[in-house]
């Protein structure tokens, strides 16, 4: 079984292995970011302060947002009620929130609007601890179920590749949010879920091609087979990623502030998901010693790893 021994000769193989180590490095960098800086959790997760006030006149939301932005340095969420006369400002629960507690008095004095301050209070998180735990459990369960399903449909090595690629995508996107200190809220969590779907999709299509080629050709070399699979799915990968990226880009550029984080998460997620389907989900089975025999159900000897 010497022919399964990995000898990256072609350019694709070289690229593939280079990007494999690149992906591994990215995971390490992301984990370092996650553990040292941590996620900048948004109001949904941490809870925070609500300050309510009412104005005599009614205003448009955008107008009020602009007025307030010079008094409140950090992120805040503004919502209006009672026809633009009753306002609530939400600030995340961090130290800066308390230092700035005089902003409303300053705002009342200098804005010249007749503002009546109302309740100011602390509110709990929208997502309780038990829900975060549940969410983690859900992801773990999903990963295991997918692993089992793919092992049955394909082969455990291919399945492992897909799941590692999936984990890689999630970790790297989380890492980006940690390093750049972008606020992580429930919307971002939702986009992470979309990334999971996307990543799986990509990995499975490459894996499917690998299986197809191996099934057709018993004596194929695993390295060339994988390269061939990547080559023949490349057009599809580029088109799908391209059109989806274009849509996400449009959201990021034109949809305004409220969907910025969402667009960043999805954009990076799709980019990362696309290359990890090549760098990880196609390469890991090879490293784990995938051979055509696994699909032809013959007696096999254990392949030597590189």
């Amino acid at each position: 079984m010497n022919n399964t021994k990995v000898k990256p000769t072609s350019i694709i193989s070289k690229l593939r292995f280079a990007s494999f180590y690149f992906a591994a490095a990215l995971i390490v960098i992301s984990l370092v970011g996650l553990f040292t800086k941590g996620l900048n959790l948004g109001l949904d997760f941490t809870g925070g302060y609500i300050t309510e006030f009412s104005t005599e006149q009614s205003f448009e939301q955008a107008e009020m947002q602009q007025k307030l932005s010079s008094y409140l340095s950090e992120d805040f969420q503004l919502s209006s009620a009672d026809n633009g006369t009753h306002w609530s400002v939400r600030q995340a629960d961090n130290n800066a929130g308390q230092q700035n507690s005089t902003w409303l008095t300053e705002f009342t004095q200098s804005s010249g609007l007749s503002i009546t301050p109302q309740d100011a209070m602390y509110i709990g998180s929208q997502v309780g601890d038990e829900l975060i735990e549940q969410g983690g459990l859900a992801l773990l369960t999903a990963a295991i179920v997918i692993l089992v399903y793919l092992s049955l449909r394909f082969e455990w090595r291919l399945a492992a590749g897909s799941v590692v690629a999936l984990m890689h995508d999630v970790v790297v996107v989380l890492g980006i949010f940690a390093w750049f200190e972008i606020s992580f809220d429930l919307t971002i969590l939702a986009s992470l879920l979309a990334i999971i779907g996307y990543s799986l999709n990509d990995s499975i299509i490459v894996g499917d091609k690998v299986r197809e080629i191996i099934m057709r050709n018993k004596n194929s070399n695993v390295d060339t087979t994988i390269n061939l699979a990547i080559k023949s799915t490349l057009v599809r990968t580029l088109i799908t990623s391209g059109t989806t990226l274009a849509t996400v880009l449009a959201i990021g550029l034109f949809a305004g502030e409220s969907l910025q984080g969402f667009a960043i998460a999805l954009f990076s997620g799709i980019l990362v998901g696309t290359y990890s389907s090549i760098a990880l989900s196609a390469t890991i089975p090879q490293l784990l010693g995938l051979s055509p025999d696994h699909y032809h159900k013959q007696a096999q000897e254990i392949c030597t790893l590189p």
Partner: peptide, 28 residues
């Protein structure tokens, strides 16, 4: 066959998230 495989796995994720998730996660 390929489309089916890809979609079933995503569906599994979706269903698990629906059963355990809350609020926006569920909606998504």
């Amino acid at each position: 066959a390929t489309i089916l495989d890809a979609n079933i796995t995503t569906m599994i994720t979706g269903i698990i998230l629906y059963t355990i998730g809350y609020g926006p996660v569920k909606g998504f």
